[in-house]
Design a protein around this nucleic acid. Structure first.
Length: 450
DNA sequence: ATCGGCTCGCGCAA
DNA sequence: TGCGCGAAGCCGAT
């Protein structure tokens, strides 16, 4: 049985195979050697053509909203991926170049080019450009979802309830292990002007990036860190996950989202590991990892306005519009929010947690977004502020999960509730809810101790 | 502490 | 066409 399901693979142009020196794998979204369908597919094709494989990653310093925090994490993962590819006899080059331009240049020597698939507009635009410009086939492979996006649904889904049965139906087909293929021809003879990755600090120093957001000390990028976290999560915290996942004073969440965002770990690999144990938290975690995460990806894939107010369903925009001029008890600017200068110690703690650690607890993300809606001058401005702060400070920012998370705070994937000022029919949350569910003051103290 | 109402639209049953 | 039901809730009534 071929474990790389056909629905994961798509030709992105209609060029024929070329007489090339190698097969090129343009790595972009799946920076790992384990459980990487694009890599294994590339190895299969290289073996079938009796060609060596060349893996390429382009590091651009122009990626929107990315800063030192994100680049450091990215590069830590890249360094590890490069090493583990070499252990498999696969040559990887990393260049300081705009990824699509680097892929176009290297495709000049390739028989065919393979790329792993991401869903945000920057990644789609790069793929489109490469597909048009190169003379050989460009093949996209989906490895960062359990169920390929269009296999799950061919349209934007309305809610978790509508996508859940569709994913459940397809799951047996895709929740299966991926075998590692051995590359036959390891004689790649390519004199690349590749960046030297022996010194990560030096590479970071060369990039012209925003350095105002510092390293997230708690998170070290790379597959081995991700796997270590996964093991610790399954052994120590999964049992309590269902009961305490919404309690930010407890340490029960997996903290894998930065690794999933940068492709340092495969969601399929995580799902299989968790599925293989007997734990009361299993079902709840798989719901988050697969149904919620892939609902978010469905949203970004099918809704071109995924990072702005315009993405919201009609009833949300209408009700928020009707309350746009309601008096606000408090209003803050982007800068005030950013500096955590609101009157609310819980909100400030959540913001501080994100700025300091690079990852806000999932439950607080809801409260955080709801309050930005409540305390901004209007819903469109609130939307921009929430997306901006999320993208800038979260290690898992600039990701479908983040965009869907912000959208949910404004009513997306949710239902209407009793109408009230400012929110209209959008679900409301307040600080009493936090105190009802957990020791909110302990959370403030915990963040203060960081 | 617990319960019902709030309110829209999807999708299935009929 | 009717009807059940839905990511994380709130609020007032009992």
């Amino acid at each position: 049985m071929d474990e790389i399901q056909g629905e994961r693979i798509r030709a992105l142009n209609s060029r024929g195979l070329q007489r090339g020196e190698y097969v090129l794998y343009w790595m972009q979204s799946s920076v790992r050697t384990e459980y990487n369908h694009a890599l294994e597919y590339s190895v299969e094709r290289a073996n079938a053509l009796d060609l060596p494989l060349l893996v390429f990653f382009g590091v651009t310093d122009k990626y929107p909203n990315a800063n030192l925090r994100h680049y450091r994490f990215l590069l830590e993962g890249l360094e590890e991926a490069k090493g583990s590819l070499e252990d498999r006899g696969i040559r990887m080059i990393v260049q300081h170049v705009s990824p699509e331009m680097g892929a176009i240049a290297l495709s000049g020597g390739s028989a065919m080019t393979v790329v792993d698939v991401g869903y945000t507009r920057e990644l789609k635009a790069w793929r489109r450009k490469v597909a048009e410009r190169i003379g050989c086939p460009l093949i996209g492979v989906e490895s960062n979802v359990v169920v390929p996006v269009e296999a799950a649904s061919i349209k934007e889904e309305y809610s978790a309830a509508t996508i859940r049965p569709k994913i459940a139906k397809k799951l047996p087909l895709y929740l299966v292990p991926l075998r590692e293929r051995e590359l036959q021809n390891q004689s790649v003879d390519f004199d690349a002007r590749a960046s030297d990755f022996s010194n990560l600090g030096e590479v970071l120093g060369k990039l012209e990036i925003d350095r105002s957001v510092g390293r997230a000390e708690m998170f070290q990028g790379g597959t081995s860190s991700a796997m270590k976290r996964l093991d610790e999560f399954i052994d120590g915290r999964l049992d309590d996950y269902a009961e305490f996942k919404n309690d930010p004073t407890k340490d029960v969440v997996s903290n894998l989202s930065p690794y999933l965002h940068f492709g340092h770990i495969s969601p399929l690999h995580v799902a299989l590991e968790v599925d293989g144990v007997d734990s009361p938290g299993k079902e709840s975690f798989l719901e988050e990892l697969i149904v919620r995460r892939e609902l978010a990806i469905n949203f970004v894939n099918y809704n071109k306005d995924y990072d702005s107010f315009e993405c919201l369903p009609e009833w949300c925009r209408k009700t928020l519009g009707e309350h746009a001029s309601d008096p606000r008890e408090y209003t803050y600017s982007l800068a005030e929010f950013e500096r955590a200068e609101t009157h609310d110690p819980y909100w400030n703690a959540a913001q501080a947690e994100m700025v300091m650690t690079g990852k806000m607890h999932g439950y607080m993300r809801m409260y955080w977004g709801k309050k930005i809606l409540e305390w901004s001058r209007g819903p469109e401005e609130a939307y921009r502020i929430a997306v901006r702060l999320n993208d800038k400070y979260e290690l898992d920012g600039r990701d479908p999960n983040g965009y869907a998370g912000v959208a949910w705070c404004f009513g997306k994937h949710d239902r209407p509730w009793k109408e009230r000022p400012v929110f209209g029919k959008i679900r409301y949350m307040n600080d009493r809810g936090l105190r009802r569910k957990f020791d909110a003051d302990l959370y403030v103290k915990k963040v203060g101790d960081l």
